[in-house]
């Protein structure tokens, strides 16, 4: 699995370099790419090897990253979150028939109704970002679960950090 991910990263880097180079202003290729902003490009997994189907939830989880995390009572996207979402944008562009639902979640240290509203904000912050990066918003639904579906157990900061999240799921319901 690790080897496979490395292979994909290499592919991404390679394509990035090519694209960036092509945007260069008349310079000869092969130089001047160091400061250029990399562009996330998704390469579908090679069929057959590990049984991960392109465009599936497993593909998203294994090869892209399905979730981003938020600060306490926050819904702004951190740099880490944007990096993950950039990969999701590339993945969604590479799998144009896939629709997703963004689940918004909160930790247990808030009240139920407020956390439902907070989860809604987090899910929509992700949806808005995907849309701003060119994903058709009609492909993206949202749903808030507030503090109802923790992924990490335990009443401690480490678990709460894991639970303040959005999760991108393939298909799914929501509105």
């Amino acid at each position: 699995m690790r080897i496979k991910i490395l292979g994909i990263l290499a592919a991404v880097a390679l394509v990035s370099a090519c694209e960036t180079a092509s945007e260069g202003s008349g310079k000869s290729s092969g130089s001047g790419v160091a400061n250029a902003k990399p562009v996330e490009v998704y390469s579908p997994p090679l069929g057959g090897s590990a049984g991960v189907r392109a465009g599936s939830q497993e593909d998203l989880v294994v090869n892209v990253g399905d979730r981003v995390f938020f600060g306490f009572d926050q819904f702004n996207l951190t740099n880490d979150a944007r990096q993950t979402l950039d990969k999701q944008v590339a993945w969604l562009k590479g799998n144009p028939s896939v629709t997703v639902t963004i689940e918004g979640h909160a930790d247990e240290r808030g009240t139920r109704e407020y956390n439902l509203a907070l989860g809604e904000r987090r899910a929509n912050a992700v949806k808005d970002y995907l849309a701003a990066m060119g994903v058709n918003p009609a492909r993206v639904k949202t749903i808030s679960y507030g503090k109802e579906k923790p992924v990490a157990l335990g009443s401690n900061e480490a678990a709460w950090r894991q639970n303040r999240r959005s999760v991108t799921t393939v298909g799914g319901a929501g509105s």
């Binding site: 247990e108 157990l153 335990g154 009443s155 401690n156 678990a159």
Partner: peptide
């Protein structure tokens, strides 16, 4: 509601 332990007990 009480605290939950890392293995999901309590709460």
């Amino acid at each position: 509601q009480g605290r939950t332990t890392a293995d999901g007990k309590g709460g």
